[in-house]
Structure formats: structure tokens, C-alpha cells
Amino acid sequence: MGRQREDPTVGDVLGEILRRTAAEVEDTAAAALADEPDGVHQHRVRVRRLRSVLGGFRQALDTRAAERLRVAYAEWGRELGVVRDIEVRADVAEEMLERAEIDDPAVRRRLVESERDLYPAAHERLVELARSPRSEERARLLREFVDPAVVDDPDQPAADVFAAVLAKQAQRVAKAEARLDGSDDAHHELRKAARRTRYVAEAIADVAPDLFPQEVEAIAEAGDDLHDALGGHRDAMLLAHRVAHEGALAGRAGELSDAYDTIAGLLRDEAEKRLAEVSPALRKLKAAASRLP
């Protein structure tokens, strides 16, 4: 007789989470390497989700093997980030130019076109790295980790383990919040904690939707809100620094630089706006975590 649907085990659920997460990484790789629209972004998201799942469920897995895989995909994620960040910087700069109603070819060249000029070479390097022995080894490690679904004590009730996992992720977010000191680095650490919490909750909801669904959904939504707000804050602040730098270079080259001050101001305003979204999301996450069994 099969196990009752309402009483899944860790082995049942976590094994399926790992298989689905790994499949998403593999399934999105081709589009990223072919440079299809949004391909790099979607593959990077799946790589981050994999790393979050491995980190969030670490205590229920072969810890050493999980960490080895996380490190391997952290390296690949950084390479994807180089390419994706070029896209983001160019897109955000273009949006700011439109918002400020600035139609200056010199400004556009410095802030938008210069970034897009970097993209082909960066993507070509990504493709070369994907063909390397290191990439083949990374894929092999993932297959060997997922195929047997190495879960410690697989017969434990999934509800007990996953409630503890979610509570731990919420605590990780709370600790990152307590370390906030106004710096970009501290906000980035909070964002990473929120991202892992979100992806862990989404993975549980996807595979085991009957496990405390209201709490899991609220935690996933709050984690998404935090991740989005802090990501928007980080993108705006990084670009504001770059705009100020390019403005200084433009001034030295004898170009008009007022537009750069305008854009940097808009970016700082956007960063503050996104930061204001953080506290409500934190309250939502804490409230949902407090209702976990």
C-alpha cells in the first residue's frame, strides 16, 4: 500500500523538489546560451533557486555533497551575473533617460550604448565557459546528487522538517535585518536571505501544496516582495554611482553634465522608494512564520 497523500515524508517531497529544481536548471541552459530573449535571466533565476534549495534544506541532505554543488553553481551564477548585470544596467539607464525626458546622444552613448557594446563579448565568454570541462563536471555533480535523491532520514514526516526549515529561514532574515546599518552591503545580505526564504517556500508550495498552504504562500510572497524591493534598491544605487562617475568624465571631456545629476537624483529617489517597501514585507514574513506549526 502506498503512503497516504496527506502524510508525505521528507524523502518523498524533498527528492521531488531536487529533481524539479535540477530539471529547471538544465531546461533553461540552452536558451541562455543561445541568447534568446530573457534567456540568461531565466537561467540565472533557476541557478539561484537551486542554490537556495540546497542551502535551505541543507540539514536534511548530504551536507558535504550539497555544499560542493552549491559552490560549483555559485561560480556559474557569478558568470551569468556578469552578463545579466550588463542587461540590467542598460535597461535601467534607458528607463531613467525616458523618465527624465533626456534625449542627448552623448548621454545615451555613455549610459546605455556603452553597456550594450559590452554584451556580445560577455555572452560569448559565457558560451565558452559552458563548453569547458569545469562546466561538464558541474553538470555531472548535479546529476549524481539528484538521481539518488540523497536525503538523510528520508522517512521523517515532511511537515515537521519543512516547518523547521521555513522557521530557520525566517530567523535568517531576522538576523540580517538586525544587522542593517544603512550600508548597501547590509541590504544585500538581507536580500540574499529573503531570496533563499522565497525559493524554499515556493519549492514546498510547488511539490507539497497541502503542507500549511496559507503560511507557505504568505512567506513566499513576503520573500518575493523583499527580494524585489531590495533588488530594485541595489540596482538603483549601483547605477547612481556609475552615473555620477560618468558625469564627472563627461565634464572633463567638455560635455554638458547636468543630465547626469538629474538621472542620479532620480535613481536615488527610486532607491529610497524601494527601501520603503522593505518594512511591510518583513512584517508580513514574520507574521506568517509565527503561524507555522
Rank of each mutant, 00 (worst) to 15 (best):
A287V: 07
H187Y: 15
P133W: 00
D235T: 03
Q156A: 15
H187T: 05
L69I: 00
G11K: 04
V216P: 07
S279W: 04
R252I: 02
P105W: 03
E137A: 15
R44H: 12
L180C: 02
A121T: 00
D210G: 12
A174K: 14
E270N: 06
V200R: 11
R64M: 00
P280Y: 04
V71H: 01
E144R: 11
H41D: 14
D181C: 04
V278L: 05
P154R: 11
L267W: 01
R191H: 07
G232T: 02
E128D: 13
A121K: 08
D225E: 15
Q171R: 14
T197P: 05
A130S: 12
L238K: 02
H245L: 10
S52F: 00
D35T: 11
V207Y: 03
G2D: 07
R242Y: 12
E136D: 13
R268E: 06
A287R: 09
D269F: 01
A32W: 05
G232A: 05
R274Q: 13
E101K: 06
D210F: 05
K175R: 15
A176K: 11
D35H: 15
A253S: 05
V127C: 13
D152H: 09
E136W: 03
Q59R: 14
A201D: 12
D12R: 05
R252Y: 01
D104H: 05
R19C: 01
G223C: 11
Q169C: 08
W76S: 12
A167T: 10
R116F: 00
P120Q: 06
L33H: 09
R140T: 06
R44N: 10
G56I: 08
V173G: 04
H245M: 10
P157R: 03
L266N: 14
H227Q: 12
A158S: 09
D235E: 06
R49A: 09
S290W: 09
R134K: 01
S114Y: 03
F145R: 03
Y199T: 11
G77A: 02
F212S: 07
S183K: 06
G11N: 03
I17M: 12
V161C: 06
A74W: 00
P157C: 13
V112G: 00
L275H: 14
G2I: 15
A240D: 04
A193Y: 05
V40A: 13
V278G: 07
R179G: 10
Q214K: 09
V165P: 14
P213M: 09
L292Q: 14
G231A: 08
D85V: 01
P157D: 01
A193Q: 07
